[in-house]
Amino acid sequence: MDIFLQQLINGLTVGSIYALIALGYTMVYGILRLINFAHGDLAILGAFIGLTVITGLAGSGGAPANWIVIVAFVLAVLVVAIAGVLLEFTAYRPLRNAHRLSAVVSALGASMFIQNGIMLIWSPQTLTFPEGIMPQTTYNFGSVVISATQIFIVTVSLLLMLALYLYVNKTRFGTAIRAAAIDQDAARLMGINVNKVITSVFILGPALGAIGGLFIGVYYRQAVFDMGWIYGLNAFIAAIIGGIGNIPGAMIGGLLLGLFSSLASGYISSTWQQAIVFGLLILILMVRPTGILGERVADKV
């Protein structure tokens, strides 16, 4: 039972990170019917920017101050959000009326460009995050250990997901996003600036992804230039499981994927973890081809 509870805590932590990154995939798909394969690399770019800020401001003298960590998160969000807008303007907007395959190739090219750019700037070596970025407090419940870092990641992730859900469903501009997701031509006729909506999606998605990427670095205390592919792939799987194009679906899919991956690693083998994840995806798609929430609110973000 203790093993189950420990893996449950670990799974919720990782799943909340997957959910944050998955939101970027699902929002872009909801508007453009495009899989932004560069999104995972944008998220990891946030981890490297945060690491650079922390090491640059804190130096090598012990744990960084709280204000340094806050600055790292803010700058990571800003830089990655700008990168997301530039990506939309250069790689996707010129191909908006082209065949979907052209956009997919452009997305893959953008992913390789960002990944290799990270490698050239920060080197191909694995970089280590300094200790003490998050409080080192742990809470023991029998043999179950919960760290303050895990509590922080899960809490902030859930708050951000709730804020995004409320923004999209309860605000005027959120209504414009949902309208553009349903029918862009009709949205234009109603006076909605669709280009502005699309740009906002490429700001919100990468911004949340940057926080998720920095959470990965903080949690595992390392960053390597090509890890955006595997984390991006898992987040993409989470979006599909939940019903791609659906914000609550991405949240649910990310949490479920994290829980299932953690339990598979704890009870079976970490070597087979990725294969088991794909098996879960296949089973869910066999039962519900559009994902868990895909049919109920199809084509909406």
Rank of each mutant, 00 (worst) to 15 (best):
Q136A: 15
L101K: 15
L208C: 07
A76C: 04
G15K: 00
T26E: 10
L101M: 14
G84F: 08
L127F: 03
S16E: 03
S261E: 15
A223Y: 06
G249N: 04
I118H: 05
T137S: 11
V85K: 14
F73A: 08
S147A: 06
T137V: 10
I151C: 01
I211R: 02
N10R: 10
G109R: 03
S102M: 08
V28W: 02
D299Q: 15
L259T: 07
L78P: 05
I244F: 14
Y139I: 04
F225M: 02
V104A: 15
F73T: 05
A180S: 14
Q115A: 11
A38F: 02
S147L: 01
G228P: 10
F141K: 00
A250T: 02
S157T: 01
I31G: 04
I17H: 03
N234K: 15
V144L: 01
V201Y: 03
G84R: 07
S123Q: 12
Q273M: 14
I153Y: 05
T52A: 10
M27C: 04
I3N: 13
V104P: 13
I177D: 13
Y231N: 12
N193Q: 12
T149V: 07
Y29P: 07
G56E: 12
A43T: 14
G62S: 04
S269G: 08
T128R: 03
Y29F: 10
L5F: 11
H99T: 08
V224A: 13
Q150T: 00
V74F: 04
V156M: 09
R96P: 12
G132V: 06
L8V: 07
A72K: 14
F73M: 07
F236V: 00
A43S: 13
R96W: 14
I192E: 07
R188W: 10
I211G: 00
A98I: 01
T155R: 05
I192Y: 08
